[in-house]
């Protein structure tokens, strides 16, 4: 009886994972379709080599629009991440200090951009930024993306700071380090994992963000998701599947890198102990 229950549960979990992963798994082979269709051709099912091709990938790298979109996504993402990480890390350290007045209020304020429905954020930002002349500019989008990225940095850095032993800073001070040196040499290395994770969060967020971009971006600021958005609505071509596959690949690579870094860090800690 208990085993049946367990079996049902396992089945349910397996189905859940299929549901979660199926869309990703289907896109990858279809992006190699030699025909401009979105379903498996007979040839593909029989694994004939001529049924597969790289033409949609070639399309991406031969298209001015896609190349510009890739460039824009990285440009906007990197600057927004930088801004979010610097501001977010400092704020997290400040927030973690019990001497900060109105702590609860300040942290609620800082988190608010990500708990506000994105459509509302986009509307507000679009009106305001257009009024002050930042509509259809890189700066406008970078600021907006930094604004929704910073809370993630604050959250992740705060999490690592919660375990931070403040006596270390005092120890550093007593050894003659000024506050900046103490921060740089003692605190930053320890919280660096939180900072890096937060920065990654902020970057992916900007890289994937499309609602604000749909409203704010002019033709020159179109990012990858923006280009996909009009691609899906205008001329649905398998090129979009190829782009989607590349994005999935990027995520897998980033996650593996993070995992490797983590286990590397743990090993270091162990050997230091």
């Amino acid at each position: 009886m208990w085993n049946i229950g367990k079996g049902v549960l396992t089945l349910f979990v397996v189905l859940g994972f299929i549901f979660l992963l199926a869309p990703l798994l289907v896109v990858v082979p279809l992006s190699f379709n030699a025909e401009p269709y979105f379903t498996f051709t007979e040839g593909m099912l029989r694994f004939e080599s001529e049924a597969y091709s790289l033409r949609w990938y070639r399309n991406i790298f031969e298209s001015e629009e896609w190349l510009r979109a890739i460039q824009n996504s990285f440009f906007i993402g990197i600057f927004a991440t930088f801004l979010a990480t610097v501001l977010g890390t400092l704020a997290a350290i400040g927030l973690n200090d019990p001497r900060l007045p109105f702590r609860k209020f300040v942290s609620a304020l800082i988190i608010s951009p990500i708990v506000t429905p994105i459509i509302v954020v986009a509307v507000g930002v679009y009106f305001f930024y257009t009024d002050i002349g930042l509509g259809q500019t890189y700066l406008g989008i970078i600021l907006a993306h930094a604004m929704i990225g910073a809370p993630y940095v604050v959250i992740t850095v705060s999490a690592t700071l919660a375990n931070f032993d403040y006596t270390l800073l005092r120890a550093a001070a007593s050894l003659g380090a000024n506050p900046w040196t103490a921060f740089r040499r003692v605190q930053l290395p320890i919280i660096s994992r939180g900072v890096i994770t937060g920065a990654l969060f902020a970057f992916i967020n900007s890289f994937d963000e499309v609602v604000i971009v749909v409203f704010m971006a002019g033709p020159k600021q179109r990012t990858i998701p923006r280009e996909m958005w009009s691609g899906i609505r205008e001329e649905l071509s398998p090129t979009i599947l190829a782009v989607a596959t590349l994005l999935i690949l990027l995520v897998v690579l980033v996650l593996i890198t993070v995992e490797v870094l983590k286990s590397f860090g743990e090993k270091n800690k162990l050997s230091a102990n």
Binding site: A22, L24, V26, V27, F207, D208, L241, A244
Partner: peptide, 8 residues
């Protein structure tokens, strides 16, 4: 990407 998943 949300767009990639919507396409899928």
């Amino acid at each position: 990407s949300l767009l990639a998943r919507a396409t899928s």
